[in-house]
Amino acid sequence: MTDLCISFHKGGGRKLPVIDAANLSLDQRQAVGIVGESGSGKTMLCRALIGTLPRHGAETVSGTVHFDGQELAGASERVWRGIRGREIGYIPQSSLAGLNPVLTVETQLVESITAVGSLSRQEARQEAFALLERVQIPRAQQVLKARAHQLSGGMRQRVMIAAAIAQGPKLLIADEPTTALDVTIQREILSLITQLRQELNMALILVSHDLAVIEEVCDNVMVMYAGASVEAGPVEALSKAPRHPYTRALRVSRVDRAVPGQDLEAIPGDAASVGSWPAGCRFWPRCALADDDCRRDPQPALMPTAQQLSACIHPERIPELEL
């Protein structure tokens, strides 16, 4: 994905940019995490990758999305039908909203499976059962007959994962898959995703607001702030020596590293919201290192540093982390 720009349609032909400099690349079987706050554009990025932007009143304005030799930016719905589910599986943010409340789990899974078209209903039913076993659902036969409200949050998320992998995609996109779940269930779901990725040789894009979750599951990470990629690289590099002040701030403001009785190193101010991005680097109003150069347009592009890419024009000024 190169320099992707996405805008919402507003009345009268006007457009509201939500993403204007997103860059991401991943190889087969690789796992990359996308971290960012609400409004940073991570969910819109996912929608661009499964071709559902138009349904949400948005479109790709410029930039490219290469997937397995195909250009997907601006692809037709017909092209997307061959990609969505088959090549790219998707686990949405809310597993409750993702399931139809009036249909049984079996009906919905069979629907995902028969979308490929080569299986009979009977075969599809057997496949649905196998899928539930694959996502480690106990008493799979009973769960097949259940409806969404009868299942716990963790179970529903497992069903969503089963649907996402039903057609054996090469890439799985999981948008905040554990956000509403308890920590113990979160741990189980993350292990399951990791295991499936290995068994099925899938690449993974995991979206989360929690850097710790991404560090646990992914090889690489891309940090988004206000519609732009601000840092990208190996998880290790970004956790040990972040080269963008925002990434560093995310790490030092974390409560699990803080000393009781001392203030946390908070990021001052509030995140730049869609429609009111500042000129220049979008993080400058909250950045202690910013100078006049940072306030000049455009938002800086990702540039190589020692082990990663950073959109900060003064990466050498960023203090080392005290570990």
Partner: peptide
């Protein structure tokens, strides 16, 4: 609330 705003709130409560 977002992580960057969490620290502000926690500092206040503390």
């Amino acid at each position: 609330i977002d992580q960057s705003a969490q620290a502000q709130l926690l500092n206040l409560l503390r």
